[in-house]
Simulated scan of single mutants.
Amino acid sequence: MIRRLLFTAAVAATAMPAMAVDTSSGRTAQTNYILKCVGCHGVDGHGFSEVGIPDFVNLIGTFAGDEAGRAYLANVPNVVGSGLNEDDVAEVLNFIIARWAGSSLPKDYRPFDGAEVARLHALDVGNIVDYRRVVAARLADLGIETAEYPWP
Rank of each mutant, 00 (worst) to 15 (best):
A98R: 10
K36L: 08
A20W: 01
I60F: 06
T8C: 01
V92F: 06
V129A: 13
G143W: 07
T28G: 14
A74C: 12
A115H: 04
R110N: 10
L142W: 09
A74Q: 05
S82W: 07
G47F: 03
A68F: 09
A115W: 00
G65H: 08
S103N: 12
D124P: 00
D130K: 13
Y33A: 09
V43Y: 03
L73E: 04
D22H: 07
L59K: 14
I34E: 13
R99G: 01
V43P: 00
K36R: 13
D113R: 08
Y131T: 11
A137V: 11
L6V: 05
A64D: 11
L93W: 06
R70S: 09
D130N: 15
L35H: 02
L35Y: 03
W100N: 03
R133F: 12
Y72T: 08
S103R: 14
I34C: 01
G143C: 14
H41K: 10
I128M: 05
L73N: 04
H121C: 01
S49R: 04
G52L: 11
L35S: 08
F95C: 01
L120I: 10
P54S: 07
K36G: 03
G114W: 01
D108F: 07
V134R: 15
A68C: 06
F56G: 00
I60T: 14
V38C: 00
G126V: 05
L5Y: 13
D55L: 05
N75P: 04
D130M: 08
L59D: 05
A13N: 08
C40S: 08
R110F: 06
A71P: 06
V134A: 15
R110G: 11
V117C: 07
A90V: 03
I2R: 08
T28V: 04
V135C: 11
D124R: 09
R133I: 11
T23Q: 12
E86I: 00
T28S: 15
S24G: 14
R70E: 10
L120S: 08
G69W: 09
V129K: 08
G39A: 02
R119A: 15
M1E: 04
D55W: 02
G83E: 04
D87A: 14
L35P: 00
T31L: 10
G83F: 02
Y109F: 15
A101R: 06
L6A: 03
A18T: 09
P106G: 12
S49I: 13
A122I: 02
H121Y: 11
F48W: 03
L6F: 02
M1F: 01
I2Y: 10
D87P: 00
